[in-house]
Write a protein that binds this DNA or RNA. Structure first.
Lengths: 165, 165
DNA sequence: TATTGTTATACTCTATAACTATA
DNA sequence: TATAGTTATAGAGTATAACAATA
């Protein structure tokens, strides 16, 4: 399942666990040998687990990223955050909007440059982040337990793929 | 850049390479230690490279997956394809629609079950797929060259993460 | 009654372009 | 003229629900 609703409240008459015909599985030899598809399936599974871990706090992976980034970089500008996360700047606006609306973060107009907004966590935001990090640590332990070699080796390879080794 | 347009025709006055303020990079120690975020960034980079490789053929990663799957499993049903790819069945409909409209695949009503549609590649679809696979192989070589250990070891770990080791 | 494929709908993620206010 | 943030818009991608044809 890829989201909370699917797991929590799937319609009873929508789908049974097994289909009548075509339940033979397909030959996926080719796709299983491709890095792109393997990454996609791994991400689907890891994000599902993450959703289980922090979904009940109504925090998306992106929101979690921003919270942790601002915690370690208080006063960071929105454009700097966007650049660090590798997304375009308009993408960050609604993310901060949500965090601000929930009282987890605040925008502070820069004293030295009136265009810029420094982002800070509120006490509540910092507190929630600690809870989230604790849940996240459980999530990562769960996911890492599936690995054959160590987490650090996988992380190193993933960051190499990301071009930021 | 995450898509073709961004690279090909970015507006000249939209963004320069360096911002005036806030160009210091942030402390990302925490995020860089998380599997979920590392996978996300790796996927972004790998899909960017894949886009470079097959984007000019107007084929999305999902379409490529379906083409290769149908090539190795002629006559596969839409529901079986959806299940193999881990997506809901309605998701497959527009994908097959597109492939059919371009003459790359065909729907054939099953002789034994009038509800089912068997999917086959056309000669043109099979031909294009061969071209795409050749381009894909270059893409995979390029991406794999970033790795420290071998591709097979990474694939094994990714499929373990995906819960399908 | 159940299943395959489909349509309708909605929500998320993402990017681009253009606007505002400041510099 | 350039930059930070914002707004508006559009296009993927994904899921859920309900429907038509068939079983």
């Amino acid at each position: 399942m890829r989201n909370a609703k699917a797991k929590a409240a799937r319609s009873d008459n929508y789908e049974s666990d097994f289909s009548e015909i075509g339940d033979e599985s397909l030959d996926m030899t080719y796709l299983r040998g491709t890095i792109g598809y393997a990454i996609r399936r791994a991400q689907m599974a890891v994000f599902d687990d993450l959703q289980d871990a922090i979904g009940k706090y109504q925090i998306s992976p992106t929101q979690f990223s921003v919270l942790s980034l601002v915690a370690d970089n208080p006063g960071a500008l929105q454009s700097t955050i966007a650049e660090a996360l590798g997304v375009e700047r308009p993408r960050i606006v609604p993310v901060i909007d949500q965090l601000e609306k929930r009282g987890l973060a605040t925008r502070v107009r820069s004293a030295t440059d009136g265009r810029a907004r420094e982002i800070y966590l509120t006490a509540e935001g910092a507190s929630l982040l600690e809870t989230l990090k604790s849940r996240f640590a459980e999530h990562q332990r769960r996911v890492a337990a599936r690995l054959n070699s160590g987490t650090d080796a996988l992380l190193a390879e993933l960051w190499r793929l990301a071009g930021d080794a």
